[in-house]
Design a protein around this nucleic acid. Structure first.
Length: 490
RNA sequence: CGGGGCGUAGCUUAGCCCGGUAGAGCGCCUGCUUCGGGAGCAGGAGGUCGGAGGUUCGAAUCCUCUCGCCCCGACCA
């Protein structure tokens, strides 16, 4: 009886733990259509907070939101050779509408480069129209063979930024800037440390010149590609005749970038911070940061305690110590007929960062009893200064979640000279990030993937590289062209 | 598309070999007692046993077909 209330532990079966958590925390549920899911209010609430934070960052870097249609003419996809090769196999295609066969099939967008740059071509005439900085929040469809809640579903929600620039260097700067924005968000809001860097040729976006990525390590030591930013060069501009008059009077193709993050990040958040009791949400992304549970025995006490709980909520909500635009998000759980213990388990499963218990004894002592979700640390907070006290705990928790995740990642990262045999041991065993030399040959990359299922996650940016750069390729022993991060990935 | 598992109440499932009144736990509703870490008692609602054929006096159970889902692989944000 007690057992079926517990989650499968991470140690016993990480995959089962993840699925159970997502369902039990009511983040999402399976839909009647295979491979697609319903995002429930608990999960959507986290996504909304992600959206808000990211949208502010996009606006602050000069982007404006727009919306492009769901349907794309099939012919558009075919205009960029690599793009069609990459995406055609996973596209949903509409062949009928209004009871009639369509003259030209419509693709349900797997991503919107083609239609966006088709439109850009109409809007851009001169270098004065550049840069054009657009973002859209949308759903996209990719017909994946194997799906997983939040991590890979047929349809998912994301944001896709699309920009056009006059020069390669400007486009490159934008590509890197947005990768930085993603990193700031993932580390500052999700408390999820990432390794940034460039993708190898085989892993880059179909149609891009270069792809950069944020890679996070999950608690099973596998990598999650959490966000990508692409320098598209002039590939799409040429395919869609996106040209402009230069300052000198000539004609040139524009330079494009695109970048995106998706609801997959919710899955990343779960697998970064969740524990065997359920979800752990970083305070900054928690739809509810604080839940107050009033404790009573008699009816008389129930009245007094719920009143006190709502009064405490009002005090917390109206506190402006974090600024008027960032009030504490507080919920009172005054349900009758559910015992306090049952409420504790429920809110822990849902990942609410801080629980406040308020009973007659606390009221007498003019304090409230707090329990932190991640460490389970419990301590009374004096009513005088309760807002500051609560805010301080949340701030500490946000920081410590990041520190803990980063320490875990580093503990499972391997640097220094390594043999291919040792590498195989790591990948068959605990897994993790292995920093090693690579001769740059795609055949080596393919061989390692075939033999170990590990892939090159990124060619890391300078700050992530080892103090002593590897000099030889881990597999061939030839001179290393790059230091790369190997890992099994989601 | 290969390999494995499974479809019985909202959920988890027993029953299936060996055909004969469809059972349990959780959840839900009502009432009373409870309430500082998953409450107890009493009463109650809820089922075309995934679907279609067949065998049989009789099918959740046996046979055939079919649909769907989950997990593991190949592919991918």
């Amino acid at each position: 009886m007690a057992d079926d209330k517990k989650l499968t532990t991470r140690a016993a079966d990480f995959s089962a733990w993840y699925n159970e958590l997502v369902l039990r925390a009511e983040l999402a549920d399976y839909s009647p259509v295979k491979g697609s899911m319903v995002i429930r209010p608990n999960g959507y609430g986290i996504w909304e907070r992600m959206q808000r934070a990211l949208d502010d960052k996009f606006k602050a870097t000069g982007h404006r939101n727009a919306y492009f249609p769901l349907f794309i003419p099939e012919s558009f996809l075919k205009k960029e050779a690599q793009h069609v090769e990459g995406f055609a196999p996973e596209c949903a295609v509409v062949t009928h509408g209004g009871g009639k066969k369509l003259e030209e099939p419509l693709i349900v967008r797997p991503t919107s480069e083609t239609i966006v740059y088709h439109m850009f071509a109409k809007w851009v005439q001169s270098y004065r129209d550049l840069p054009l900085l657009i973002n859209q929040w949308a759903n996209v469809v990719r017909w994946e063979m194997r799906t997983r809640l939040f991590l890979r579903t047929l349809e998912f929600l994301w944001q896709e930024g699309h920009t056009a620039h006059a020069t390669h260097d400007e486009a490159e700067e934008e590509t890197r800037r947005m990768l930085g924005v993603y990193r700031d968000f993932m580390e500052g809001w999700m408390a999820m440390p990432v390794v940034t860097g460039q993708k190898s040729e085989s892993e880059k976006f179909a149609g891009a010149l270069r792809t950069y990525s944020c890679e996070a390590m999950m608690q099973d030591n596998k990598a999650l590609q959490a966000g990508t930013s692409h320098n598209l060069g002039q590939n799409f501009a040429k395919a869609f005749e996106l040209q402009f008059q230069t300052e000198a009077g000539g004609l040139d193709f524009a330079w494009n970038t695109s970048w995106g993050v998706s609801t997959r990040m919710v899955g990343g958040l779960v697998m970064t911070h969740g524990d065997d009791n359920g979800l752990v949400t970083p305070p900054k992304l928690a739809p509810i940061e604080v839940v107050i549970v009033p404790i009573w025995k008699s009816d008389e006490e129930r009245g007094r305690m719920t009143d006190a709980a709502y009064a405490l909520r009002n005090e917390l909500q109206s506190w402006t110590g974090r600024g008027t635009h960032d009030p504490l998000r507080v919920h009172v759980d005054a349900r009758e007929g559910v015992k306090p213990g049952a409420k504790y388990y429920e809110w822990e499963m849902q990942g609410v960062p801080l629980r406040l218990e308020l009973g007659p004894k606390d009221l007498e002592k003019q304090s409230v009893f707090s329990a932190r979700r991640d460490t389970r640390a419990k301590a009374p907070i004096p009513m005088a200064g309760v807002c500051e006290g609560v805010a301080a705990i949340l701030e500490t928790m946000q920081r410590e979640l990041f520190d803990a995740a980063k320490a875990r990642r580093e503990a499972n990262s391997y640097r220094g000279p390594i043999t291919y045999d040792r590498f195989k041991e790591i990948m068959e065993g605990p897994g993790g990030f292995v920093y090693a030399g690579w001769n740059g040959d795609p055949a080596v990359e393919a061989q390692v993937k075939e033999e170990t299922k590990a892939t090159i996650r990124v060619i890391p940016d300078a700050e992530f590289r080892s103090p002593d750069a590897p000099t030889t390729c881990m597999v061939t022993g030839q001179p290393a062209k790059y230091e790369v991060v190997w890992a099994k990935a989601y």
